[in-house]
């Protein structure tokens, strides 16, 4: 009888320790529940609007901007580029599922052949490479326009990031998770310090946006820069702002970070491209 008790106790400990470590799905449920508990008046679907889900004044200004969306030019340019065949006659559509229309919600994805995370911007450039076209710089207008157009065609599609049953995929997810929660830089801040713990609070004159829904609206037109930026350029800016040396766009660090962060937003819909201050 005592042995059965010991066995039951052992099983209970195992269950508790596994839930404490947390797999991706347990993490996502806890992550989303945290924000819903913290901001009970904000509907779940509204998190795709970032800080505008929390700050009514800023939301009114943003809605006025959205009447003449500053990203519209990028979408139009992206559509033109997307439709132009390469020298060999192939098109971007040939490189993607569903001819590249409405696929943003599946990126970043884990590529089992290479054992690493592939972002949409990376997939666009690799498509060019496979068709003997020169790659675009990751902050180029062309690449961001293509990404903006592909996001546009995916509006309303539910973010559906998959962490397959592959230890390399789980390692990439864990690496992104560790990055997100680790303090770095001279200011000793983690991403989560601002966008989880302090979400909704002021940083100088602005409110800090909630992490939930962050990747849904990229690429975005940033008014203060007067141009489109990718999610990785935003990562770059945040890391620099806490006075750490930023990683390059599309580095393994940022791809894993995007993988984790986008998985946390599974269940929300794509509403990119977006407009931000």
């Amino acid at each position: 009888m005592p042995k059965i008790r010991q066995l039951l106790f052992f099983c209970l400990c195992m269950v508790l320790s596994v839930s404490a470590l947390g797999g991706p799905e347990e993490d996502r449920i806890a992550f989303q529940a945290y924000f819903q508990e913290r901001f009970p008046d904000v509907p779940f679907a509204d998190y795709i609007n970032g800080i505008y889900a929390l700050d009514e004044n800023a939301r009114q200004q943003w809605m006025e901007i959205e009447e003449f969306p500053p990203y519209e030019f990028a979408v139009e340019e992206g559509e033109t580029l997307f439709g132009q065949p390469f020298e060999n006659g192939n098109t971007y559509g040939d490189c993607f599922d569903n001819q590249g229309i409405g696929v943003r919600q599946n990126y970043p994805r884990f590529d089992p052949e290479r054992g690493e995370v592939v972002t949409l911007e990376m997939a666009i450039n690799e498509c060019r490479q496979r068709n003997d076209e020169p790659v675009y710089s990751y902050d180029s207008e062309e690449l961001l326009s293509l990404s903006a157009y592909m996001a546009w065609t995916s509006r309303g599609n539910m973010i559906s990031i998959v962490v397959p049953d592959d230890p390399r995929a789980l390692a990439a997810y864990e690496s992104g998770k560790q990055f997100y929660y680790s303090k770095r830089g001279q200011l000793n801040f983690a991403c989560s310090d601002c966008h989880v713990t302090s979400a909704g609070l002021y940083v100088r004159a602005d409110h800090l946006s909630p992490a939930l829904g962050h990747p849904s609206h990229f690429p975005v037109y940033r008014s203060k820069l007067g141009k489109m930026i990718s999610l990785h350029e935003r990562f770059y800016g945040c890391i620099r702002d806490v006075r750490a040396k930023p990683f390059a766009e599309q580095s393994i660090e940022y791809r894993d970070l995007e993988y984790f962060l986008t998985y946390m937003s599974n269940g929300l819909v794509v509403n990119g491209p977006g407009a931000r201050k």
Partner: peptide, 12 residues
């Protein structure tokens, strides 16, 4: 330090 303490910040 962070290689250990980051776990304390994970949303549970």
């Amino acid at each position: 330090r962070e290689s250990v303490t980051w776990r304390e910040r994970v949303v549970q």
